[in-house]
């Protein structure tokens, strides 16, 4: 089998699991909408639209974290990861497939979340949507990688946010910049740079996370 076929098969497995069990996506949707309602009451009256734009990024980050925390749970509970590592395919395919599946969940959650945000707070520009797309790539690439790390530790779910949030700070900078700045080009470029750098790093080093 080729690399692409391996990735496709693994990603399809995750999507199929989600389609049957419906573990993650409904939780992400409910969480992000509930977060918006909390933000509405957290923002004092007459606070600027800029504040709401910033909070959108907090909501996206935490929603993604919710999905990422679940990403490797089936592998851990059924000890599937051992089988995947033994399978005659490149180990980075496991990371890529899981990232794509997580990306699909996150994108699906945002398809609902962004219109809800526009309804509750204010309309979103094209630059914000482009920023969200670019940020999703980085969030899923890095988050899936760290999720695979966290799942083998004793602390498990506790560890993922600690590992992920310092690495997500540049994403927030780029995303908020793209949402609020007059000329979002440099922020979008920065997000793209982040995506490329960390995707290459994750792709090259995933092997060491799952093997000894």
């Amino acid at each position: 089998m080729t690399y692409a076929a391996d990735v496709g098969a693994l990603a399809r497995k995750d999507l199929l699991l989600e389609l049957r069990a419906r573990d993650t996506l409904p939780a992400m949707l409910l969480f992000v909408v509930a977060t918006f309602v909390v933000f509405h009451f957290a923002l004092p009256a007459h606070s600027s639209q800029l504040a709401a734009s910033g909070l959108l990024w907090v909501a996206i980050l935490f929603t993604a974290l919710l999905g990422l925390g679940r990403a490797f749970v089936p592998e851990r509970e059924q000890r599937v990861l051992d089988g995947l590592v033994l399978a005659p395919c490149d180990r980075s395919a496991i990371w890529l497939a899981k990232s794509l599946a997580t990306l699909a969940f996150l994108a699906a959650a945002e398809l609902v979340a962004l219109p809800v945000f526009a309804l509750f707070f204010h309309g979103l520009g094209g630059a914000t949507v482009a920023g969200v797309v670019l940020a999703d790539l980085g969030i899923c690439a890095v988050g899936t990688f760290l999720g695979a790390m966290a799942v083998v530790t004793r602390a498990r779910d506790l560890l993922l946010p600690l590992l992920f949030l310092p690495l997500a700070i540049p994403i927030v900078v780029g995303g908020v910049g793209a949402s609020v700045a007059g000329s979002p080009g440099r922020y979008l470029g920065f997000l793209a740079l982040y995506d490329v750098l960390f995707a290459v790093l994750c792709w090259a080093s995933f092997e060491y996370v799952v093997t000894e």
Partner: peptide, 14 residues
């Protein structure tokens, strides 16, 4: 080592 320059750039442009 990747995060250091990326964060520096992020803080600089922000």
């Amino acid at each position: 080592v990747v995060l250091i320059p990326v964060s520096f750039l992020a803080i600089r442009i922000a």
